[in-house]
Design a protein around this nucleic acid. Structure first.
Lengths: 245, 245
DNA sequence: AAGTGGTCTAGACCACCTT
DNA sequence: AGGTGGTCTAGACCACTTC
């Protein structure tokens, strides 16, 4: 059995155990809606204390993989519910799951002084500069959305087009280069109609309906890092989300 | 000091403590971004063990009221982030926060055999019946949305118009009458255009842009209970959501 | 060095569900 | 009655931050 919890390891025991349990679920060893071993059994199986077992289980519950029923047991979630929030809300993952090839064209990356409304949302003083990334999002090589991101980084902290092309993901850059971890976001969605320029870029008629998303993303310290404005083609895009509690 | 943790009470200690801390935050006793007392200090202040303190803090973190920084302390969230998911996603709460008077017209409540697609999503066998509730949602007395809910209840488990008028909330009825607690939902949003009937009911022109939301709600046992289809007027409604992790 | 949160133990008793 | 998860204790040591 490869499933052994290492003591004194860099990785916490509860996390090692969570990884093992997750592996068994994903391998189909425990079917959806069937119970996993009880907390006392897991104590014996892995030689860790019950609070640690519970911490591992609680982690997997927040991830959507397990649910508990008092007096009955702990059960594997139905497959549909096993996807995390991250996968459900990432543009790229979204398309991949629907069998569409995602892509992007980076139109520009610049340090600029944004509109006042953007500075207010990012809680920056008037006159501050931010990095603006202007992109066209593609699905199967056709335009699906126009995305403009404003990122609150002080002068000297820069993001280059090489960074974006190497990793492909803005969030990876924020995490690895600046230790900024997006943990929370407020998003609004509404309907609007395409103006001339938007229609040209999205290859649709002027006046076509669009889905407008505005998102403010916060880091682990609850500081705003990013304000994003995205216009999606109404006929090519559907927004997915999962609500909890 | 009224803040005393009662032993042997029906309410768990961690929850009593969480309520006390929440009260202090909402009363402004601890300002946003300022630290609350350390876990060791809280141990002495309330005479409960540290794991219990931590459980209370973890609960308030999931509620969005606090955040932690390793080695620095536990801090009060900025006010904007103190709203829970529930408030952000309830139609009624949504409008109230924007200073709009919410209302509804119940067009019908019936037990019917729904379209096959609805039965599939509710994981019911072909030919099953469900309860359909057909409503018009109002904001300041004008129509904002058309909502059709399909609720997976066995024959004999019924919802009456009196139930709806007494509580006003479908979720309250599900919880109090049937012990079904909605805990998770998958939602999609897309753009569509109003047909003749929809335009009439919403008092807009045919062909006006609408926001279409489809939501599948799951109970504490991860069983689907409700499928909802809502058409919102594009010019009168904006959808808010909060993403975590 | 001192204070903070992060992890972990080895128990205990209670509430809920099934048989 | 026996098994399950829910709550709680009184400690311990570690990792990170600040002084």
């Amino acid at each position: 059995m490869s499933s052994v919890i290492l003591p004194h390891a860099a990785i916490p025991k509860y996390y090692q155990l969570a990884t093992i349990l997750q592996g068994k679920i994903e391998a189909g060893e425990w079917a959806p809606r069937s119970p996993i071993p009880s907390e006392r059994q897991l104590e014996l199986m892995y030689d860790v204390s019950r609070p640690t077992i519970r911490q591992a289980i609680e982690y997997l519950i927040t991830q959507g993989l397990l649910y508990r029923e008092h007096g009955r047991g702990t059960f594997v979630s139905p497959e549909k519910l096993q996807k995390g929030l991250r996968e459900l809300t990432s543009f790229t993952e979204d398309l991949v799951q629907r069998g569409i090839r995602p892509g992007q064209v980076i139109r520009s990356i610049e340090r600029i002084t944004p509109p006042e409304g953007v500075l207010q949302r990012l809680e920056l003083p008037v006159g501050s500069t931010v990095i603006r990334i202007d992109r066209i999002r593609l699905g199967n090589e056709t335009p699906i959305g126009l995305q403009v991101s404003y990122i609150a980084l002080a002068p000297g902290q820069e993001i280059t087009i090489e960074d974006m092309e190497k990793t492909g993901s803005l969030y990876r850059i924020l995490e690895e280069k600046f230790n900024l971890i997006p943990t929370e976001a407020d998003e609004t969605l509404e309907v609007t109609l395409a103006n001339r320029e938007e229609a040209n870029l999205l290859e649709i008629n002027e006046g076509s309906p669009l889905l407008l998303s505005e998102r403010l993303t916060f880091t682990q310290n609850r500081r705003p890092v990013e304000f994003v404005h995205i216009l999606y083609r109404g006929d090519r895009y559907r927004y997915y989300t999962r609500l909890k509690r």
